[in-house]
Nucleic acid binder design. Structure first.
Lengths: 217, 217
DNA sequence: AGTCAAATTATCGTATACAAAAATAAGATG
DNA sequence: CATCTTATTTTTGTATACGATAATTTGACT
């Protein structure tokens, strides 16, 4: 946990938006938030700025900040971009990966397989992140890696749900193996396409999940 | 110009980083900046947070903020991502563009041609931005459009220089025509590839420019 | 003389105070 | 009774003040 109050507030609000405690369009009142987190308005304002920067809130001058939870449409849009970035990472990784990085990638995916064997979806979630992190590092483009991480983080709270969708984990693993194969063979375009589909399937699964949730309401 | 002091400070520092007045690694002292912009530390701190969010500065806890001007390597990396995003915009636009949007795109490019005929590179720069803006809007993915705009803005100060490179403007226009043709024909992959090359050429031109500048030093 | 420790100084992070602008409420006028 | 104007109140944006932590300097001891 961060020692800075501003960061605590930022993460706290972020969490409450992700969990739906703070709904779309809701006003982010500085004073209420300050009281809620037992700090003054200063760190709250800094947290709000960070939220605006992350796209989780909008700021209207002299009017204040408002929650800006991504709509269904926007989520799909984000997945569309994410799949492209992941594809680029894989394409570049196929051209630039080192032997050590490839070994690490394989080892990480072995971890994924073990997590499935143990039926531990939380562990799978963590090792899955590691798998993609390996590819980010191997793409040889730090800026791209950071941008992709940023977007992944933004889609994160929704991803965690997706993986629980029945039958997704083994399929995801199979896709991982194919991606590794393409990267190892230096087949950049294949690795690109496979990764793109890998992410977009998650987007579609997310779609399924939303539909399912709507039928429950 | 923004009415908020924090925004003025943000843009001011951004400008000074772009023009090289503030060099890489330089300390962004809150008090000095406050004096320089005739404001208190509060808006300066908010501006610094925005800079960190934009990637133009790094913040070390309890140590302060430091300029983080993109290195040559990082610039190339940014162009690599930019070309991918522009490519995606064009690919999607080829599938989703409306008749009105296509008409606007053609009209804008006619403006580009006129700017060249008049030898007005500033005007060409402006209409060129409009051209790409048309494609962003036509891609039907607002999130993608925003992300691409963000990155374009970050590469902006360098782009302005690139277009002055001899012979670039007419070549750029030719590329525009080919992109329009592909989008109109609904050839998504062609539009993608053409746009990607269109941006990467600018990256290479940027490379040329840097080399040229280094020989002058 | 060199090194370690304590005191000092500077700067960050937060709290509070104040000013300006917008939203709201109240009152007057047609 | 409706509407416009004006006063009040709420809230944002900025300035200043204060406390805490890290860097620096000074001094003592080996």
């Amino acid at each position: 946990m961060s020692s800075r109050a501003a960061n605590r507030v930022f993460q706290g609000i972020e969490e409450q938006i992700a969990t739906g405690q703070l709904k779309d369009g809701e006003k982010l009142d500085e004073i209420s938030l300050a009281e809620r987190f037992s700090v003054s308005r200063t760190p709250v304002r800094e947290a709000l700025l960070q939220l605006v920067g992350s796209g989780l809130a909008t700021q209207i001058p002299k009017r204040g900040c408002f929650v800006r939870a991504p709509s269904f449409k926007e989520m799909i849009e984000m997945f569309e971009v994410m799949s492209e970035l992941e594809g680029l990472c894989a394409r570049l990784a196929a051209r630039r990966i080192t032997d050590e990085q490839l070994a690490r990638l394989k080892a990480t995916n072995a971890g994924c397989e073990q997590a499935i064997a143990e039926g531990d979806s939380d562990l799978y979630y963590a090792t899955n992140v590691d798998f993609h992190e390996c590819i980010y590092e191997a793409c040889g483009n730090q800026f791209l890696a950071n941008e992709t991480r940023r977007l992944r983080r933004r889609l994160q709270s929704f991803r965690r749900l997706q993986l629980r969708v029945r039958g997704r984990m083994p399929q995801s693993l199979t896709e991982h193996y194919k991606i590794i194969e393409a990267i190892e063979a230096g087949q950049a375009e294949v690795a690109d396409e496979l990764s793109r589909v890998h992410v977009m399937i998650q987007g579609e699964r997310f779609n399924d999940l939303l539909m399912h949730m709507e039928t429950l309401q």
